[in-house]
Design a protein around this nucleic acid. Structure first.
Length: 567
RNA sequence: CGGGGCGUAGCUCAGUAUGGUUAGAGUACUUGCUUUGGGAGCAAGGGGCCGGAGGUUCGAGUCCUCUCGCCCCGACCA
């Protein structure tokens, strides 16, 4: 490509709306342009990057035996009514009617459509397993699109679906997909973690997220400093505590604790570690129909993890509750305890099971119990309710957990029969019995990956593309095109690169050195060959974008050097 | 969906509190000359329904009402 004939509208100023590096640099360097809220046009450079990522995904999927398909973007609303998701998705589904007044939606994901293409066509266990996928535009009418390509309404996603006769076979495919996704991200040159995730309302037996590590990530991850363990904080686990503070010595007793309400006050009052106090967090659990207050009991040293708490009671949402409401149901704020608790539904954290030497509220103003042995509680509901904290032990090894930020670029699920059962997508098993397909689903955000690469790889000058994602590997920058010998040299090198299948762009624009250099750095080509005054001494220079290293090379050894650098 | 902010040249923004010449700057663009290793200099140009619709007024970018769009914080995000 000749830069003079390309369409790469770079700008010195950032669009005023851009906040994130990826948004700023992808806009400034002419990869994308915003159309409306959450809608972006991909310009020539952006399209090249998108295609490179797609190609890698296609190669890895093909290697796994997955089959590419292309489903209609516009989908009949009936399918969504059948699966029951038309209500669940709510306003995120963009709906419209055709000229015959039939209702359609723009596909936000394609479980229903994928099931529909297999349903009644795959009818025997002998035809299974099957893994089909597509790389396609999706549309979700998000309440609040933001962060440029990171959270757009229209975006490109690879979505794959597998169909199995047995859960064992699903497990095998799930592992194969995890491995394939790992290879894709490795090839793209990204630093990432595969983490355990909350499978949320969709249920299923397993769900993992692929997180590209970047400080601007929207998700918080707990990762082990020693092993591979990582989990979204919504689902993170920790090993049992090893350093247990010394237990206070006290026999069971009711103790006057005037106006001592917070864990901090309580801990100071009795001079005990908060580990031995019982924290009560009351929230209103909201269900499909109705709501109720629920109390979550955890150790005073821990924090409640809302997603875990929500899952423990099967609620859609947890909302704050006022002290007045607590009083109304007969609770005493600041002195709520678990013993003889009959005013409210409650759940105990796993870590309080059989806990001894505890201090907890006496359900009476200005009184706490000390020396409580929670094993007397008997048969009460327990669940994992707490947020793992920095420094907690890894559940798999001796390491410590750290927090880091990640961008979710992929999510793989074991769906089971969540869609196949309601959609009546069934096959006959070996015994001639009709069974719903056992399904897995595997998503990867392709356009989000474009942004993720830049979030992880940029500096104050602009983009730094990895080798696999760069729109062009090499930029041949002619410092002054009026120097005919220089231009001629560049043309020859450009032709040689073409013969060697190295993608190059020839910056033959009638611009000054500084202007072209700034563009090269902003766009972020991995290598820029500077053809200028050094050529008079028989040299050119190669700027390595990632390291800012400037390498001087003999003019006739450039190909060898580039080949070595590209690797 | 709650709260806040912003819409003026392709882009980034002044100008709006207190209404009053022909609506400005920087940048980008066109032409010419000079310059040519870090976003050049000089000169001359083109470019605006001041988001839209109503209204108040002799007069509205500026005041009032309505509306549309965009951004930020939060809720939401299989």
């Amino acid at each position: 490509m000749r830069f003079s004939r390309a369409y790469i509208p770079t700008t010195k100023e950032s669009p005023k709306d851009a906040q994130l590096p990826s948004h700023i640099y992808l806009s400034r360097a002419g990869f994308v342009a915003q159309v409306a809220s959450g809608l972006y046009n991909f310009l020539p450079l952006g399209k090249r990057v998108l295609r490179k990522i797609e190609t890698i995904i296609n190669e890895e999927m093909t290697a796994c035996g997955a089959l590419e398909v292309d489903l209609s973007f516009v989908t009949p609303a009936e399918l969504w009514e059948e699966s029951g998701r038309i209500e669940k998705f709510g306003k995120e589904l963009l709906r419209f009617r055709d000229r015959k007044d039939n209702l359609f939606v723009l596909g936000p994901t394609h479980e229903e459509m994928m099931v529909s293409i297999v349903r009644n066509r795959i009818t025997s266990y002998k035809q299974l397993p099957l893994n089909v996928y597509q790389v396609k535009t999706k549309f979700r009418d998000e309440a609040r699109p933001r962060f440029g390509l990171m959270r757009a309404r229209e975006f490109v996603m690879k979505d794959g679906y597998s169909f199995h006769a047995t859960t064992e076979d699903l497990d095998r495919e799930f592992d194969a997909m995890e491995a394939a996704y790992k290879r894709i991200l490795e090839r793209l040159g990204l630093t990432f973690r595969i983490v355990e995730a909350d499978s949320g309302a969709i249920g299923g037996t397993g769900s993992k997220e692929l997180m590209v590590l970047a400080s601007s990530g929207e998700d918080t991850l707990a990762v082990c400093d020693t092993c591979e363990y990582g989990a979204n904080v919504e689902a993170a686990r920790r090993s049992p505590r090893v350093l247990i503070p010394e237990a206070p010595e006290a026999n069971f007793a009711k103790f006057k604790t005037p106006n001592i309400k917070s864990i901090e006050d309580l801990s100071n009052f009795f001079h005990v570690d908060p580990y031995y106090t019982l924290k009560a967090v009351v929230l209103r659990a909201v269900y499909e129909e109705g709501s109720e207050p629920v109390c979550f009991f955890i150790r005073g040293c821990d924090e409640l993890q809302e997603v875990k708490a929500r899952n423990s009671v099967g609620a859609i949402d947890l909302v704050d509750i006022s002290e007045a409401e607590l009083t109304e149901i007969g609770l005493v704020p600041g002195f709520i305890g678990a013993l003889d608790q009959d005013k409210i539904r409650f759940v105990m954290d796993n870590d309080t099971r059989n806990a001894t030497s505890m201090i907890c509220g006496a359900n009476e103003a200005d009184y706490h119990f000390v020396g409580v042995d929670l094993s007397v509680m008997g048969d009460v509901p327990f669940a994992d309710l707490v947020a793992v904290a920095v420094g907690d032990g890894c559940p798999h090894c001796e390491g410590k957990l750290l927090h880091t930020k990640g961008i979710e670029v992929g999510h793989i699920f074991k769906l089971g029969t969540v869609y196949s059962a309601p959609l009546k997508a069934e096959f006959l098993d070996e015994n001639g019995r009709s069974q719903p397909f056992i399904m897995g689903t595997y998503g990867m955000g392709v356009s989000r990956l474009v942004a993720a690469v830049i979030e992880q790889h940029h500096d104050e000058k602009g983009c730094i593309w990895t080798h696999a994602t760069a729109p062009y590997m090499v930029n041949l920058m002619v410092s002054n095109i009026k120097e005919e010998a220089h231009l001629l040299y560049a043309e020859e090198l450009y032709a040689t690169l073409g013969k060697n299948k190295i993608e190059a762009i020839l910056d033959d624009r009638k611009e000054r050195f500084g202007f072209k250099m700034s563009d090269a750095e902003l766009i972020g080509f991995p290598f820029t060959v500077i053809i200028g005054k050094e050529l008079n001494n028989g040299h050119v220079q190669i700027l390595v974008r990632a390291t800012a290293e400037m390498i001087t090379v003999d003019a006739d050894k450039v190909m060898e050097k580039l080949a070595e650098l590209i690797g």
